[in-house]
Amino acid sequence: MSAYTIGVLAGDGIGPEITSAAMTVLKAAEKRSGYELFDWLELPVGKAAIERYGQPLPQMTKDALRGCSGWLMGPHDSASYPPVYKAERNPSGELRRSFDLYANIRPSRSLAGVNGLTKEADLVIFRENTEGFYSDRNMFAGAGEWQVTPDIVLSAGVFTRRAAERIADAAFRAARKRRKRVSIVHKANVIKLGFGLFLETCYEVSKQYPDVAVDDFHIDAAAAHLVRHAHRFDVILTTNMFGDILSDLTGELVGGIGLAPGLNAGDEWAMAQAAHGSAPDIAGTGAANPTGLILSATMLLDWLGERHSDRRAEKLGRVIDKAVFSALAGETRTPDLGGNASTAQFAEAIIAKLPV
């Protein structure tokens, strides 16, 4: 009997192509391992859902996801949705808020065979995922912005001790399994109360982890240090907007945003979602690099394994992870990495590296 029902949200643009590639790799790895881990549940989201159900994220999709152990989400192209939907939270933001996926975890690793701007990076960003300066999701109802005159707009940032405590705890727990260093990124020198509360709370949580070293950086200094010294960072702990920005930076440093994985995790569910967008300019051409979403899926496997004490899921994630890195070091490459392989061909190259 399968252990986990995995929801599949293909999304827009290149989403269906990379989601299909990720499922193909996971199914092949599952078959070769002899495990029976997954049932797959494909659900409507994005433009296809608008056309059929009149909503980019139908209630039926949200209801079905509550019965899933986790899910894969392809990128969405909410910028191209009809104007009536642009005032709403986009599908990703709505899922993060509805399911309380408070930790956005985005690793960046230098990869053999990939010509990144840095060769020694191995870090992970823990981004608080529910509040901060993201005005579409930091209020109970409505958005945290007000246009008080035609020429004046106020945008609210929300910082709570509870949110800082739980993302800090997740970051320090992860650091214990890595190189035991957490760097807090903030702007408490200017936004003294909001970022001050975040910084103070993170340091309070650090006292529960005396074996983990901790330091902190202003956001501007952190960005500069990452460009020159990314290899010195282990776990970066930061707020919503800063984490979003820094993870794109670190993704480019190691070879490109198409390689950048991510996991949105809460206490009950997790959503594998690559850091990149829907790339509508190459949608349907077969040129998209599926690496980011496939590595996101391995993060989901690791999360499932830890949450359910399931070594099979953890082992399968490691096997796929190793196969991806081995394939990237080979000659089969998608156009963003200087090759001419299609999305499906690169997925097959990964499968060829799986143990028989």
Rank of each mutant, 00 (worst) to 15 (best):
H225E: 14
V254Y: 03
Y134W: 14
R179S: 08
I320C: 01
K119W: 05
I105V: 14
Q147N: 13
I191S: 03
A297R: 07
G255C: 05
R127T: 04
A171D: 03
P16G: 03
D321K: 10
R161V: 12
Y85N: 05
E331G: 07
L197P: 09
G266V: 04
G116M: 05
A3R: 09
D267F: 09
E306P: 00
A79E: 11
W146E: 09
E145W: 15
Y4N: 03
I320T: 02
E204M: 11
I257P: 00
L65H: 12
V212Q: 03
F198H: 07
L117Y: 13
E94L: 14
A49K: 05
R333W: 08
G54W: 13
G67F: 09
G144T: 14
V324D: 01
F233P: 00
D215N: 15
A222K: 04
P261A: 09
Y209K: 05
P150W: 15
A327V: 06
Q273W: 02
A329R: 07
I18Q: 00
T332S: 05
N90M: 10
K187D: 12
K119R: 15
Q147W: 08
R311N: 14
P75I: 10
D244G: 01
L101Y: 15
F172W: 05
D310S: 12
D244L: 02
P290Y: 11
P82H: 10
E94Q: 09
I14R: 01
A288P: 03
V84N: 15
D151R: 12
M299V: 08
H229D: 15
P56G: 05
P210L: 12
P290A: 02
A188C: 15
R312C: 04
G292N: 06
S135G: 07
P107H: 07
A297P: 05
Y134V: 13
P75K: 06
G284Q: 10
F325P: 00
A188H: 11
T250R: 03
V84R: 15
T238V: 05
L72A: 02
T5P: 01
L57P: 03
K353I: 01
H218F: 12
N129W: 02
G266E: 09
R52F: 09
S309L: 12
H276F: 15
Y81W: 14
L65R: 06
S33E: 07
Q147L: 10
I105E: 01
E306C: 09
F233R: 01
T160Y: 08
R162T: 12
A279N: 01
P75A: 11
A143I: 11
E165K: 13
G277P: 04
P16W: 12
D244W: 05
D215A: 12
G262H: 09
E306D: 10
A28V: 06
S309P: 00
V190Q: 09
